[in-house]
Design a protein around this nucleic acid. Structure first.
Length: 652
DNA sequence: TTTAGGG
DNA sequence: CCCTAAA
C-alpha cells in the first residue's frame, strides 16, 4: 500500500540558485568553470540529459509546470504506486524504454536496465520505488530500512515525480514542519524521506504531498527528519552555493530537496588531494567550498546513521564516506528482501549493468570501433553513455528550465570532477596499468570492442604511473595514446592513496549488503556489460577544460637525457626561444611543452646554483649544470633577441 | 600562440 | 606544473 515513493538516489545535487553563483565571483575563473562544466557536460551529456529528463518526469517539469507537476505528484502519490508508475510510464513511453508493466506493477521490478542511460533513468526509479513500496508495506522500521535499501539500489529510480516532489521540502525550515508531521504519521515519512531526494520540486503543493506522505510514514520519519535537518543544517546543498537559500526556510517547500545528504555530499566532495590549487582558486571564486566540505562531512555523519544511508549502497560504494555510513547502518539494512527483488528484477541484464554502475559508481557503454589497422592505427571509441552515480537535484519549483539544466550540469560536473575518474574495463576487468598501450591491452582489437567499458568511479590510487616512459618518449617520440590514456584514466589517482582502498573494500561490502545474497549480481555489475553496440557519436572527451575537473598533468621528471637535450638546445638557441627549443629537441615529446622547457630551464638554473645536498630528484650531472649556468650567463648577456638584433646590426 | 614570470 | 598577463 504504501508507496515508497521515491527512491532516490545517490547523489544529490544541490540546486543552487544562480544568484549565488554570480555573487561569488566572476572572473576568469568563472569562465573556466563554465567551460569545464560544459565539457563535462559534453561528456556526460547523455547522462545529464537523462537526469534532466528524470527530473522533469519526476517532478513533472519543474519550471513549466511547477504547480501542475505538484498536482500530478499528489495524485500519484496518493493513489499509490500505480499512479506514479503510470505517469512514469508515460514518460517512459515517450522515451521508449520503460515498460508499463514494470512500472505499474511490479513491485519488484525494477529498474530499467540502464536507468542511467539517459532515457530510462527516471522510469527505472519509479519502478523500483514502487516495488519498494509494495514490498515494504508491512514493514515498520525494518521496512523502512529495507525500503531504503531498495531505494539505494534503485537509487535512480526514485525520482519519480511524486516522490521527488515530496522529498523536497526538507530544507532547514523544513525540519520543523517535517518533524511534526512525521510524528503524526510515521510511515510515509520514510518513504518520502527516502524519496526525497530527487528532484526537487519544490512547489508548495509538493510539500504538502510530502507532508502527507510523511505522515503516513510515521515512525521513521523522525529519524529521517532529523537527518534531513542535519543535512540541511550542514548545508547540504550549499555545497556549492551560498545562496542556497535553500536553507531558507520559508520556502522550505520550495526548497525541496533534501535528501540523502550523505550520499550526495560525498559524491560531491572533492577529494582533498586533487589539485589543491585549483580548488583554492575555485574556492575563491566559488565560495564556499570549504563550507561545503564541511557540510558534507556533517552530512555524512548524520546520514550515516540513519537508515537513509542505506539508500545508496551503490553510491556509498563509490565513496568511502558512504561506506562508513553504510557500515553503521548495515545491520539494519541487512534485511533486505527488498533487495532481492531488485535482484530478481525483470531486467537482469539491465539490472546488472545498473548494479554494476552502482557498485563502481558509474559505467558507460562503449562501442569501440577499431580500425582494422595494425599497430599504428588509432582506436576510435564511441561512448554511448556513462552511467553516473545517482544525482540528486534540488531545485526550487520556481526555477527555470535553464536553471535546472545548469544545475544538472553542475552537479554532473562536480561529480565527475571531484570524485570520479575514468576507469577502463576490458571484458569485465579493470585495466589498471595505465602504461600499457591499447594494443597491449587488447583494446585495439575489434572483436573485443564489446567488452570495452568505461566507468566512472571514485578516485583511488590506481595503477601505475606512467612516468617511466619519458626518456624514451623524448627521443623516440612516444606514441601518445597510451600515455594519454593513462593520464586520463589515472592521472591524479596515484596520489590518492587511502581512498582507493577503502573504496575497494567498500564496494564489495556494499554490494553484499545491498544485494544481500547475490554475489552474482555484484559480479555482474562488475563486469561491464557492453552496452549498446550502436555507435554513438564519437565522443570527444574534453576533459581538459574544467579546472575542477581537470586533472593536473602527471608529473614527469626530466630525465638526464632530456636535460642534456634541453641544455644543448638552449646553448644553441638561447633562452627566449622556447618554442624553437621545443621543436629542436623535444619535438617528439608531446608531453613537453615549450612552457615546460622554459620551466625546466628555470629549475635547472636554480638547481645549478644550490648545493648538491639541496638538490632533489634524479641527480643531474654536474657537467650539465655547469653548462646550464654557462649558457644562462651567456644568453643573459646577449639577451637573445637583442643579440639577434645586435648581430644583425653588427652585420649591417 | 608564445613569452616571461609568479605561484 | 599551473596560470596568466602581455605581446
Amino acid at each position: 500500500m504504501r508507496r515508497l515513493e521515491h527512491g532516490f538516489c545517490g547523489y544529490r545535487v544541490p540546486v543552487v540558485p544562480r544568484a549565488s553563483r554570480s555573487a561569488r565571483g566572476r572572473g576568469p575563473i568563472r569562465k573556466k568553470c563554465e567551460d569545464n562544466q560544459i565539457r563535462a557536460f559534453e561528456i556526460l551529456a547523455s547522462v545529464a540529459g537523462t537526469v534532466l529528463q528524470e527530473t522533469e518526469n519526476s517532478v513533472s517539469t519543474n519550471a513549466a509546470c511547477v504547480k501542475n507537476p505538484l498536482h500530478v505528484l499528489n495524485a500519484n502519490s496518493k493513489r499509490g504506486i500505480e499512479c506514479e508508475g503510470r505517469s512514469l510510464k508515460e514518460d517512459a513511453r515517450g522515451q521508449g524504454n520503460c515498460d508499463e508493466k514494470s512500472f505499474a506493477c511490479v513491485p519488484g521490478l525494477q529498474e530499467h536496465p540502464e536507468s542511467y542511460t539517459l532515457n530510462e533513468f527516471s522510469h527505472v526509479q519509479d519502478n523500483q520505488i514502487l516495488e519498494v513500496g509494495s514490498a515494504s508495506n508491512t514493514c515498520d522500521e525494518s521496512e523502512m530500512i529495507c525500503f531504503t535499501k531498495k531505494l539505494a539500489t534503485v537509487s535512480i529510480k526514485s525520482n519519480c515525480g511524486s516522490s521527488s516532489s515530496r522529498v523536497v521540502g526538507h530544507s532547514l525550515s523544513f525540519g520543523e514542519f517535517s518533524e511534526e508531521k512525521v510524528e503524526a504519521e510515521p510511515h510515509k515519512s520514510r518513504s518520502e524521506i527516502s524519496g526525497i531526494l530527487p528532484v526537487a520540486d519544490s512547489s508548495e503543493d509538493l510539500m504538502e504531498l510530502d507532508r502527507e506522505s510523511l505522515a503516513l510514514v510515521g515512525p521513521e520519519s523522525d529519524a529521517k527528519v532529523s537527518l534531513l535537518r542535519d543535512f540541511i543544517d550542514v548545508g547540504t546543498f550549499p555545497r556549492c552555493y551560498d545562496n542556497v537559500k535553500v536553507v531558507s526556510r520559508d520556502d522550505d517547500e520550495n526548497s525541496v530537496g533534501c535528501t540523502q545528504p550523505s550520499t550526495i555530499s560525498k559524491s560531491y566532495r572533492p577529494p582533498p588531494d586533487i589539485g589543491e590549487r585549483r580548488i583554492k582558486k575555485l574556492s575563491a571564486s566559488r565560495h564556499g567550498r570549504e563550507s561545503q566540505k564541511f557540510k558534507d562531512g556533517k552530512m555524512k555523519q548524520m546520514c550515516c546513521n540513519k537508515r537513509y544511508s542505506h539508500i545508496d549502497d551503490r553510491s556509498q560504494k563509490i565513496y568511502p564516506f558512504k561506506k562508513r555510513k553504510f557500515f553503521s547502518q548495515s545491520p539494519l539494512c541487512t534485511s533486505d528482501e527488498v533487495f532481492h527483488h531488485e535482484g530478481v528484477s525483470d531486467f537482469p541484464d539491465k539490472r546488472n549493468s545498473d548494479n554494476h554502475s552502482a557498485a563502481t559508481g558509474a559505467s558507460s557503454s562503449v562501442t569501440g570501433q577499431v580500425p582494422p589497422a595494425s599497430k599504428g592505427c588509432n582506436v576510435k571509441l564511441s561512448i554511448k553513455s556513462f552511467k553516473v552515480p545517482e544525482l540528486f537535484i534540488e531545485i526550487p519549483a520556481t526555477a527555470t528550465v535553464g536553471l535546472l539544466k545548469r544545475t544538472v550540469m553542475e552537479s554532473v560536473t562536480a561529480v565527475l570532477g571531484d570524485g570520479l575518474h575514468v576507469g577502463i574495463l576490458l571484458q569485465g576487468k579493470k585495466v589498471r596499468d595505465d602504461s600499457k598501450t591499447l594494443l597491449q591491452t587488447g583494446i585495439s582489437q575489434d572483436h573485443k570492442r564489446h567488452n570495452l567499458g568505461f566507468i566512472l568511479e571514485p578516485r583511488h590510487e590506481q595503477s601505475n604511473p606512467p612516468s617511466s616512459s619519458e626518456d624514451s618518449s623524448l627521443f623516440s617520440g612516444g606514441t601518445g595514446t597510451p600515455q594519454e590514456l593513462s593520464r586520463h584514466s589515472g592521472t591524479s589517482l596515484s596520489n590518492l592513496g587511502s581512498c582507493g582502498e577503502s573504496k575497494l573494500n567498500t564496494i564489495p561490502s556494499l554490494a553484499d549488503i545491498s544485494t544481500g545474497n547475490t554475489l552474482a549480481e555484484t559480479q555482474a555489475l562488475v563486469a561491464v556489460p557492453a552496452i549498446g553496440m550502436e555507435a554513438l557519436a564519437v565522443i570527444p572527451f574534453h576533459r581538459k577544460s574544467h579546472p575542477e575537473f581537470t586533472q593536473r598533468r602527471i608529473r614527469r621528471p626530466f630525465s638526464v637525457s632530456e636535460v642534456e637535450a634541453l641544455v644543448q638546445a638552449v646553448e644553441k638557441l638561447g633562452t627566449g626561444r622556447w618554442r624553437d627549443v621545443k621543436l629542436r629537441a623535444f619535438d617528439s615529446a608531446k608531453h613537453r611543452t615549450y612552457v615546460d622547457l622554459k620551466d625546466k630551464w628555470k629549475t635547472l638554473v636554480h638547481t645549478a646554483r644550490i648545493s648538491p645536498q639541496q638538490r632533489r630528484g634524479e641527480p643531474v650531472p654536474q657537467e650539465l649544470l655547469d653548462r646550464v649556468l654557462a649558457a644562462h650567463a651567456y644568453w643573459l648577456q646577449h639577451q637573445t633577441r637583442q643579440q639577434v638584433n645586435n648581430n644583425n646590426d653588427v652585420k649591417d
